[in-house]
């Protein structure tokens, strides 16, 4: 079965699920899961295909969320315009910061991206005048589209999942193009990649920027969906969670990371009584996956070409 047909089937299943499930709690969780899928799909392009790690992606989600929310709340800018601006600014920031950072490799790249995420987090935490600091930012308006307001769970659910599938479709297209082949070459044989005419550094910065684009878009939608954001949602733990989702889903497997990010976003919400233990479970899951399933769930989706 081709990837695109499977994606279409998955889309239909998700839509039908949305229409039949009336429980707003479940719809809410699924919408949040969609936002995770967007971030992780972007990170999968960077980590799974190009082989470059980022331990700071929650920082870019935070930038998307805070910039759009601040534009909207403090400067009264139209939410859609605020989202576009936030995504643009964050992506530009990603490109600028990615340029020097992606000259680093493996552990050094991990440390640098971790630092970037932490810097963004502490700026958000301490710039109280604009961001509200640790108290969070409230009063973010609801999204509406030419008078059509996303005032019920199902409306946002349909919107966000449609967008998610479009973004996955675009990623699949990219990977199946000459650029996808180039990134696979960069991932496994970087020196040889030069010989095929690939400007390796430029390509790395580009895919980093794309993944920042995905992250900031999810962040901005998150802000307007919940109406409230606080720095605790965008810490190092979240950055690591995203990496865990890619690794357990299987590096480079769109459907593996799709299911992993849906499940790993929903589980902690269901098992709220076990909240304190969740980081332990998550860490354990990562260790076990590394030991027994180094390819994650990739193998489960081998039949999709």
């Amino acid at each position: 079965m081709s990837q695109k047909i499977f994606l279409l089937i998955l889309f239909v299943v998700i839509m039908v699920f949305g229409f039949f499930v009336k429980n707003p709690f479940i719809l809410n969780m699924m919408s949040l899961a969609a936002l995770s899928v967007i971030v992780v799909t972007g990170l999968n392009l960077l980590l799974g295909f190009a082989g470059q790690i980022s331990l700071g992606h929650a920082g870019f989600v935070a930038m998307g969320a805070y910039i759009s929310a601040v534009f909207s709340v403090k400067f009264n800018i139209n939410p859609w315009v605020a989202i576009v601006l936030a995504v643009f600014i964050t992506s530009l920031f990603g490109a600028v910061i990615g340029y020097p950072t992606l000259k680093l490799k493996s552990h050094y790249l991990a440390m640098a991206t971790l630092a970037i995420g932490e810097i963004i987090h502490s700026v958000v935490n301490n710039y109280v005048d604009l961001t509200g600091g640790p108290q969070g930012l409230t009063g973010i308006p609801m999204l509406s589209f030419f008078g059509f307001s996303f005032d019920s769970e199902i409306k946002f659910y349909i919107f966000v999942w449609t967008l998610t599938f479009l973004l996955i479709l675009m990623s699949i297209n990219l990977v199946n193009s000459r650029f996808g082949r180039a990134y696979k070459a960069i991932k496994s044989k970087e020196n040889a990649a030069y010989a095929f005419g690939i400007n390796v550094h430029f390509y790395k910065v580009f895919i980093f920027t794309v993944s920042v684009f995905y992250a900031s878009l999810a962040g901005a939608l998150y802000a307007f969906y919940l109406g409230f954001i606080s720095p605790s949602s965008f810490g190092l733990i979240q950055s690591i969670d995203y990496v865990v989702m890619v690794v357990i889903g299987g590096m480079g497997s769109f459907f593996g990371v799709f299911f992993t990010s849906v499940i790993l976003t929903i589980l902690p919400n269901i098992l709220t009584s076990l909240e304190d233990y969740w980081p332990i479970a998550n860490g354990l899951l990562l260790i076990l996956a590394m030991m027994f399933m180094p390819n994650g769930l990739k193998g489960l989706f081998k039949w999709i070409k």
Partner: peptide, 21 residues
């Protein structure tokens, strides 16, 4: 596909062409 990798620079399609197929 490995051989197609060698043809990378002869292809003039840009990233937008690729993203949107």
């Amino acid at each position: 596909e490995n051989v197609m990798l060698g043809y990378h620079i002869n292809m003039k399609s840009n990233v937008l062409d690729a993203f949107l197929s």
